[in-house]
Amino acid sequence: DLSALRVEEVQNVINAMQKILECPICLELIKEPVSTKCDHIFCKFCMLKLLNQKKGPSQCPLCKNDITKRSLQESTRFSQLVEELLKIICAFQLDTGLEYANSYNFAKKENNSPEHLKDEVSIIQSMGYRNRAKRLLQSEPENPSLQETSLSVQLSNLGTVRTLRTKQRIQPQRTSVYIELGSDSSEDTVNKATYCSVGDQELLQITPQGTRDEISLDSAKKAACEFSETDVTNTEHHQPSNNDLNTTEKRAAERHPEKYQGSSVSNLHVEPCGTNTHASSLQHENSSLLLTKDRMNVEKAEF
């Protein structure tokens, strides 16, 4: 173990290094160091905050020279020094078990990766560091076993998940096959086929009936047209017969005018059967003409 005197000496050296690497504005270890034209180094955030307070150039807090945003430059070497100082402080805390008085939040800088452990060898070769390295080497064999167990647990979990997924996939297939086998029997399929065939026959029977009705309507229309044509021909046949009657009536009127007047009046009210309204109107006109002729003949006879 380190003596108290040596611990104090190391602590004083760390404090001196820390004062050199402090920012003059925030009085902390410089984060993202930036250098000016006057070779003074500050935190990048502190300098941008200072420049944004005034429009135009501002003055350096140490030498009062003008500073602009374009004049600022990043210093990589200074950032490396800060990183190495942080590593020294971490090693000091691990070796002594004491917390550094002016320690900052170094938890963000710590890294437990194997590459980081290899890099620590180049920091300080001390008894405390050696003991700590031995402890780490002793704890390393235990870690692979834990990793193997965790991997086995994960693989077993994956296997159970896969088996569950396969079961879920197989179950719908089985149910679907069961439904297909038990849903419709052979008799049901035959009945469905016969039902479809009967429906098709009914459709075939319905369509000819409609065509037959249309044919019957067409035949009825044709018969009505033929009947009207026969009526017209009958009226045409009746007209010459009426003319013959008129000639006979004229002759009778010349011989017996008194008797014919009474008979002509009675004939006005008689309509021949089986004739249309057109034929009756023609008869009325003929009878009126005959009456006028008879009157003329009677007057001539009187004179």
Rank of each mutant, 00 (worst) to 15 (best):
M17I: 06
L51F: 08
E202K: 12
P61R: 03
L245F: 03
P257T: 06
C43R: 15
N276I: 02
E115D: 12
R212M: 04
F92I: 11
T235I: 01
I170K: 09
S71R: 10
C46R: 15
R6G: 09
Q261H: 03
L164Q: 12
Q209H: 14
F45V: 09
C63F: 14
V270A: 01
Q59P: 13
E249G: 03
E254A: 02
K19I: 02
N52D: 09
N143H: 02
L158V: 11
E229Q: 01
N52S: 03
S139G: 06
C90R: 11
C273F: 04
N276S: 01
N65I: 07
L155F: 05
T166I: 04
N267I: 01
D95E: 12
E249V: 01
V7L: 12
E140G: 05
D1G: 02
K87I: 00
Q239K: 06
L94V: 06
D244E: 11
T36S: 15
N157Y: 09
R174G: 14
P24S: 11
T247I: 02
D294G: 13
V7D: 05
F78Y: 04
I14T: 13
L86V: 01
D244N: 03
Q209K: 11
C90S: 07
N286I: 12
N243I: 15
F42Y: 05
Q18L: 10
C26S: 15
T230K: 11
S219C: 12
Q171P: 13
C38W: 15
I20T: 09
A193E: 15
K118Q: 11
N111I: 04
V232G: 10
K55I: 03
D66H: 03
S126I: 12
A133D: 07
H278L: 00
D188Y: 02
E236K: 03
I20F: 07
N143D: 10
S150I: 00
A279D: 15
K259R: 02
S79I: 13
L62V: 13
I25L: 14
F78V: 03
L204F: 09
Q18E: 11
H269Y: 01
Q147E: 12
S228Y: 02
E202D: 10
H116Y: 01
Q80E: 05
N234K: 09
L204V: 01
T211S: 15
N52I: 12
T189N: 11
E229G: 00
I25T: 08
V232A: 15
E187G: 02
P257A: 00
S219Y: 02
D66E: 13
V13I: 02
L85Q: 15
A193S: 12
S185F: 07
L203F: 03
S126R: 06
F106C: 02
R212K: 08
M17T: 13
E202A: 11
C26G: 15
L136P: 12
V153D: 12
N143I: 12
Q80P: 01
S216C: 02
H278P: 09
T163N: 14
N243D: 11
F92S: 14
L94F: 08
E299D: 08
L2F: 10
D294Y: 13
R70G: 10
K31Q: 07
D213Y: 00
P57S: 06
N105D: 03
D95V: 15
S216G: 08
L158R: 04
R169G: 09
H278Q: 03
Q93L: 12
V161M: 09
E32V: 11
E74K: 12
F227L: 09
S103N: 06
E258V: 01
A301S: 14
E120K: 10
K31R: 07
P141A: 15
D188N: 09
V198A: 00
K19N: 03
F303V: 09
A107T: 06
L85R: 12
Q168K: 14
K44I: 05
R77I: 07
L50R: 08
E226V: 01
A279V: 08
S150T: 01
I41R: 09
A223G: 02
A193T: 11
L164M: 11
Y195D: 12
E9K: 13
C273S: 15
H256L: 03
L146F: 01
T163I: 00
H256Y: 13
P24L: 14
E22D: 05
Q173K: 04
P33A: 15
A4S: 09
S103G: 04
L2I: 05
T189I: 08
I67M: 07
A91D: 05
S266P: 05
D119E: 11
A253S: 01
T230S: 04
Q201H: 10
S75I: 02
N286K: 11
H278N: 11
S139T: 09
I41V: 06
I88M: 04
S152G: 10
C23F: 14
T233S: 03
D244Y: 00
R165K: 09
Q125L: 11
E8V: 03
I123L: 12
K55R: 01
L203M: 04
S263R: 01
K118R: 14
E148V: 10
R169W: 02
E140K: 08
A91S: 04
E83V: 08
E84A: 05
P141T: 07
E120G: 14
V270L: 00
M17L: 04
I30M: 08
K49N: 02
N131K: 08
E202V: 00
H40Y: 12
S241N: 00
T248N: 06
T149A: 09
V7A: 13
L21I: 06
T96S: 11
K31E: 13
S139R: 11
N52K: 08
K109N: 09
Q147K: 12
N12I: 04
F106V: 10
E142Q: 07
K221N: 09
E84K: 09
K293T: 03
Q283H: 12
E28V: 14
F42I: 02
Q11L: 07
L217M: 12
T211N: 02
H284L: 00
I14V: 06
Q209R: 15
T76P: 07
S186F: 00
L268M: 14
K54M: 12
P24A: 00
S176Y: 00
K69T: 03
L21V: 06
S35C: 09
Q201K: 05
N131D: 07
P144R: 07
V265I: 09
S186Y: 14
E229K: 11
F78I: 11
Q205H: 05
K54N: 08
A16P: 15
A224D: 01
D184N: 09
E32D: 04
S75C: 03
R212S: 02
A16T: 08
A279T: 14
L155R: 01
C46F: 15
E249Q: 06
R255M: 09
P272T: 02
N15Y: 05
T96K: 13
H269N: 12
E22A: 10
Q11K: 10
P57T: 06
C63W: 12
C26F: 15
L29F: 01
D184Y: 03
I124T: 06
P144A: 06
L81P: 14
E229V: 00
T160I: 07
R130K: 04
E140A: 11
E83D: 04
R132G: 14
D1Y: 05
E148A: 15
L48M: 03
S266A: 01
S139I: 03
E83A: 10
T76M: 10
N15T: 08
A252V: 06
S113C: 14
A279S: 12
L146S: 06
E110K: 00
T160A: 03
N143Y: 02
Q80K: 08
A253V: 11
E142D: 12
H238N: 11
L21S: 05
I89N: 09
P61T: 03
G56V: 05
L137V: 05
C23G: 15
L72P: 10
I25M: 01
K49E: 03
I30N: 06
L217F: 03
V10A: 06
E236V: 02
G128S: 06
L217W: 14
Q261P: 02
R130G: 12
K259E: 11
V34F: 10
S3P: 15
L50P: 03
Q73H: 13
E258Q: 10
M296L: 13
L29W: 00
K55N: 10
L72I: 12
N297K: 06
E299G: 11
L51I: 08
E32A: 10
L98F: 12
T189S: 01
E110D: 12
G210V: 05
V232L: 02
V34I: 09
L98M: 08
L146V: 14
Q73K: 09
P33T: 12
G56E: 12
I89M: 14
K118I: 13
S156F: 03
S150C: 03
S197I: 01
A91T: 09
K19E: 11
D231N: 08
L5V: 08
T68A: 02
T194N: 05
L94P: 14
L29M: 15
H278D: 04
S71G: 12
V153G: 14
E8Q: 13
P208S: 14
H40N: 10
L137R: 11
I89L: 10
K134I: 04
T160N: 14
E9G: 13
K49Q: 04
R6H: 11
S152T: 02
V10G: 10
S145C: 02
K250E: 11
N243H: 04
Q125H: 10
D231Y: 05
L136V: 11
E285G: 02
L164P: 07
M296I: 07
F42C: 14
E226K: 11
E8G: 07
K44N: 06
A16V: 01
E226D: 07
S3T: 08
A4T: 06
A220S: 00
S3A: 14
S122F: 15
L72R: 12
L48P: 09
S79N: 04
